[in-house]
Design a protein around this nucleic acid. Structure first.
Lengths: 190, 190
DNA sequence: ACCATTTCTTAAACCAGCTTAATTTTTTTG
DNA sequence: CAAAAAAATTAAGCTGGTTTAAGAAATGGT
């Protein structure tokens, strides 16, 4: 069970069957249908989430009352509002499924206990965080150097499967463009 | 020696004197004057850097041949091109001192050996990476929700000492604005 | 103190991408 | 399958922030 997570951990550290059993004590599976919420604005984000199957989005509601998506998570991605998770502060975000999803969740206290019982997991999470940071540095670089049109084209070229799977207006929101402008860009490309 | 680094590590994990001695084997101090480079575009970024004293900036040169700053590092910050560091890919960035600085550097192989000899440091770096990720999520949120003018005002309000210490055109670059526009904003505030 | 270099300012013309608002297409649900 | 809801398109007008170009002020080295 949780084959995706186990395989993901095994990319980075050794993991025997006994350790997997221990690990299982700390992990809570959550099955969600489309548009279910894992986190709502104002709540403290008390868990980190791993996507076994499905897709999540993280967004906040801006002053114009429209949803601003800041992150997606597909299979094998961890997602959380780390700011809220680390310091137990109320979150400004929503985390919601984009489609029917199987999520694994580890809450704050399980996370600490798990790391105490299985210190080798510190290494796994160090590497996960380091890679997430590298990804976020890369994304920031693209946002600095590309025009919005180039950013859109580059994104569609890099993640074609993703573009199929997620509604266009969500991609627009994630890239920081209006749906109208994306529409215009698509017309131009044809 | 390296009091800032030692204190920083002690914020997150226990550290006895013997451990510090071991740690020292892996750390290379580098003293730099203003505008010296730690990394140039095209090189593989083979180290992570800790600022004991001073200030670093990380930037790339865009197609208009102007410098786009993506990060600063003051005292007690780690900085690196993690994308290049992790996968040994040539970096697209420069890392340069903004002022005379004392830097501590750990190269790729020292990093791996150090983590093997002192596995408790995995925890320290897991926490450092996690916090860096939280900071980068927060920064991204501001970039999404604020206009450039608000972003500038917010930045100056949040880091007044920093604004003193770093030339205005660098702050403009970091925030993704032109120096001309920052000039206009300042005039407006007075 | 003086010259060279770096940094900051001013102002006008310009444009990428947004807003608004109305219409059409697609998807969801009973 | 039909009605309702959600998502995508179109087009015109507008604006926040850039570009360009020139001059002024601050900083640093000798």
């Amino acid at each position: 069970m949780y084959t995706n997570l186990i395989n993901h951990i095994r990319r980075y550290i050794e993991l025997d069957d006994d350790t997997i059993d221990i690990l299982n004590k700390y992990i809570k599976p959550v099955n969600l249908k489309k548009k279910d919420f894992l986190l709502k604005e104002g709540q403290v984000c008390r868990s980190i989430y791993f996507v076994e199957k499905g897709c999540l989005r993280m967004f906040f509601v801006n002053d114009k009352m429209s949803e601003q998506i800041t992150q997606f998570a597909l299979e094998n991605w961890w997602i959380s509002d780390f700011f809220s998770f680390i310091d137990n502060k109320p979150s400004g975000y929503f985390i919601q499924t984009v489609e029917k999803s199987e999520i694994l969740s580890i809450d704050t206290s399980s996370f600490e206990m798990m790391l105490k019982e299985l210190p080798q997991m510190e290494r796994y999470f160090r590497i996960v965080m380091q890679r997430a940071l590298a990804a976020s540095q890369l994304r920031a670089k693209y946002m600095y150097e590309l025009t919005k049109e180039e950013f859109y084209t580059h994104f569609c070229g890099s993640f074609p499967e993703f573009v199929q799977r997620v509604p266009q207006y969500m991609i627009a929101s994630y890239l920081g463009l209006t749906p109208e402008y994306v529409s215009e860009l698509r017309k131009k490309k044809l």
